[in-house]
Write a protein that binds this DNA or RNA. Structure first.
Lengths: 329, 329
DNA sequence: AAAGTTTATGCAATCGTTTGCATAAAGTGA
DNA sequence: TCACTTTATGCAAACGATTGCATAAACTTT
């Protein structure tokens, strides 16, 4: 059985309230009593029961982090920022996954509410926001990360997707490439949409006609990158330049190319989003947009903490980070 | 303010106990009352306060998952197994990172204890187990994953590291390769040690003399793979075959080779641990050991749940998964 | 109709904290 | 010495749920 305030009180001959006051640093307690209590607490191995404290204080110092997939390096970089930042202020993070599925997402939110988290950071898996509005709200602030959602007025931390994909595609065009295929993410997701707009904008500003056959949407996962690259390569007149909307689709696409013995002599060029540890090893990937992933998490966490602490200023706040694009190989 | 049992009781004219009984499915309550209560609960949007429940029941249905680094795909695959499995039985998972640092690990354990988690799954960052023994114990079961720790009698879920690295190295030798360099992980960590034993065993069984110059230990992270590969390549008589102890060191090593314009003609061959999504894209990596990462997590979670529910059978239980080794490219 | 049984519900304690208010003791000032 | 502050501490309620025990009402049984 764990030691409680009561045990210390009994041991030192003072009341529970006095013990509580000493341990929470109340200066009104006499120095002698403080010493006694602290000594006893230490000797007996006391550790607060934050469950009881939370009940009384109506604050759990726990926040929820909901993302579509926990093994996703991109999401976990964001999670890292969140965890790092919040740990400093004494919060813990419960991680839930939605498995790219709105019902699971809603289930996670419900559980988190029942656990009385002080707030949540959500990377939504769709553009559906109803369940979030329903389950969260004033007593449980929400910050979205990486993606927005329809019909939901809340804070969000995003990146400048359109500008980055514009720059990448524009860069290719400026090098004389005109037939650039587009491998998109899940069309329902704002980041996918924004990256597509950037692509379109680059074509438009350079007076290039959009070829609908060169535009395909997947789901941001490996297999869809593989499949779409396959389809493109099997066209009668295959494109040689590609914009791929995220890292995982790049892995899939590069794997297709690898398996089919393409090599540099084919002069294929890929640009796209996300630079991960293994990106420099990709054969055809020339430039990638480098999102400040950890910083997104850190920023979302800071914002959430402010909201938890009652700051209502300029709500809802949508902040966007700029994206770097670097030469890869 | 959230709705409480009291509110429902007031609304329906019964006592709090009756409401509690209805909502926890007690059949002794009259059908009519059940209906009334359920209806009111639904209409008022009642949601249990698990903080209060936890305090009373002395069970939080929350477990801690402590790992060295949250952005590590390998650890997160294990975490996925854990989360998936435990979610089914109504548990949530708090993720903490130790940043490969014993003090941080101890801090995390302390916080988790204060949050009254029902148990923990730990991927320890060193071979130090004192702080775990101190902070956990009977009232808070612990299952280790992937690595063991000195002086700590507790359950663990591991893989058969030695057998796998033996097989990989032996395979190279059987193909006539005799000078196989070893790029090790953090020597303090059991998995690194076991992989090293497998390497030594393969040399020994094939009567190959160990060349100390061909053995180097890093820390399981990218940079160390890069640095050690560099050192090897700069030897006057560089080895051409390599055993690399995990994925991240492989990425580092491959990046070094890539940057230094090595290509297939050099006939370099890498074998080693972990097969990730991007592994097939690595130029020199020929075979990799495929650990059942998600299954490790699932198994650890099952074991932990059993311990939480009071099963003391065959404690401590160390289970080891077999490892596959597959052709890579 | 009395005694016994069953059914449905309420009372009140409890989990471990925190905190407003009361109060006793000690100290201060004239 | 008396009134008045100040200082140190305790009492008890509260947070929101669960549950053993008590009990009133409704049925059985003979």
């Amino acid at each position: 059985m764990p030691v409680t305030l009561k045990d210390i009180a009994r041991q030192t001959g003072v009341s529970v309230s006095t013990v509580s006051r000493v341990l929470s640093g109340d200066k009104a307690i006499s120095v002698q009593t403080q010493k006694n209590v602290r000594k006893a607490a230490k000797k007996m191995g006391y550790r607060v029961n934050t469950v009881a404290r939370s009940l009384k204080m109506n604050r759990t110092y726990t926040v929820g982090f909901v993302c579509p997939e926990i093994t996703n390096e991109f999401f976990m970089k964001i999670a890292k920022g969140v965890e790092q930042e919040l740990k400093q202020s004494g919060y813990s993070v419960i991680i839930c996954t939605s498995n790219e599925n709105v019902e699971d997402e809603a289930r996670s939110l419900r559980i988190l509410r029942e656990k009385c988290v002080d707030g949540m950071i959500i990377i939504p898996c769709s553009n559906e926001g109803k369940h979030i509005k329903e389950l969260c709200g004033d007593s449980c602030p929400v910050v979205l990360a990486d993606r927005l959602v329809d019909d939901l007025k809340t804070d969000a931390v995003l990146v400048n997707n359109e500008a980055a994909s514009f720059a990448l595609v524009d860069g290719l065009i400026k090098k004389g490439k005109k037939r650039i295929a587009f491998l998109g993410g899940n069309e329902l997701i704002t980041s996918a949409k924004e990256r597509f707009s950037g692509y379109l904008k680059a074509l438009k500003e350079n007076n290039i006609t959009v070829e609908p056959d060169l535009i395909r949407f997947g789901d941001f996962y490996l297999q869809s990158g593989y499949d779409i690259m396959k389809d493109f390569c099997e066209m009668e007149n295959p494109p040689k330049e590609f914009f791929i909307s995220n890292y995982f689709m790049q892995v899939g696409a590069e794997r297709y190319l690898q398996e089919h013995q393409k090599n540099k002599e084919d002069e294929l060029t890929i640009v796209g989003f996300d630079n991960m540890d293994a990106s420099p090893l990709f054969r055809f990937t020339e430039r990638t947009a480098v999102q400040p992933m950890v910083a997104i998490g850190t920023e979302a966490a800071r914002l959430l903490r402010r909201r938890i602490e009652g700051d209502k200023e300029s709500f809802p706040l949508i902040s966007r980070f700029d994206v770097d694009w670097n030469v890869n190989n």
